[in-house]
């Protein structure tokens, strides 16, 4: 399995940031960065990372299944993560989530047929004072109204 030069450089840097013999410490970020590039933690990726860090694939699998951001199946090109935790709930996060599902015609953790969008109801994103908050891929959006979300989705769709 091959990665982009940028990703390889990142791995190399990561591996140098731990004491000698502790390279497997890079596992969690390596999986996340690799997922960003290839879309999901595929069995091939598990194999590859396990090989590089001298772990068994089963040990890697055990870690993958623990972290909520690591996923085995690809999401949409724009992965809309909507927080409905307490601060966002108080300011309309749940309604926003329902609105997004209606707007895109998909449910939680589903992908639109064109592969452009997916929705995930997530736990606190750390944007409580500017709730309700969403993250599209890694971009934060604060105080998101249903109308603002509509505008965002429409503008993203226009890019394609």
């Amino acid at each position: 399995m091959t990665f982009s030069p940028e990703l390889e450089a990142r791995f190399e840097k990561l591996l140098k940031s731990y004491p000698e013999g502790r390279e497997s410490s890079a596992l969690v970020p390596m999986l996340l960065y690799a997922q960003d590039e290839i879309g999901a933690v595929t069995p091939e990726l598990v194999e590859e990372v396990a090989r590089r860090l001298r772990l068994t694939p089963a040990a890697v699998e055990s870690v993958v299944s623990y972290y909520s951001m690591l996923r085995k199946h690809p999401v949409g090109k724009y992965h809309i993560q909507i927080c409905t935790n307490i601060s966002c709930q108080l300011t309309g996060g749940e309604e926003l989530f329902e609105h997004a599902c209606r707007k895109l015609g998909i449910g939680n953790r589903e992908v639109t047929p064109d592969g452009l969008f997916s929705i995930e109801e997530v736990e606190c994103l750390g944007a409580c004072s500017w709730a309700p908050a969403i993250e599209v891929n890694y971009d934060y959006h604060h105080k998101v109204t249903p109308e603002a979300l509509d505008r965002l989705i429409d503008s993203l769709r226009k890019l394609h």
Binding site: P43, T56, P57, A58, A59, E61, S62, S65, Y66
Partner: peptide, 20 residues
């Protein structure tokens, strides 16, 4: 041998074998 590991988390946690 290390053929067994815990997978998932919270109440979904379970034991899984090394070959999937």
């Amino acid at each position: 041998v290390s053929a067994l590991a815990v997978v998932s988390r919270a109440v979904d946690s379970e034991i899984a074998p090394n070959m999937g």
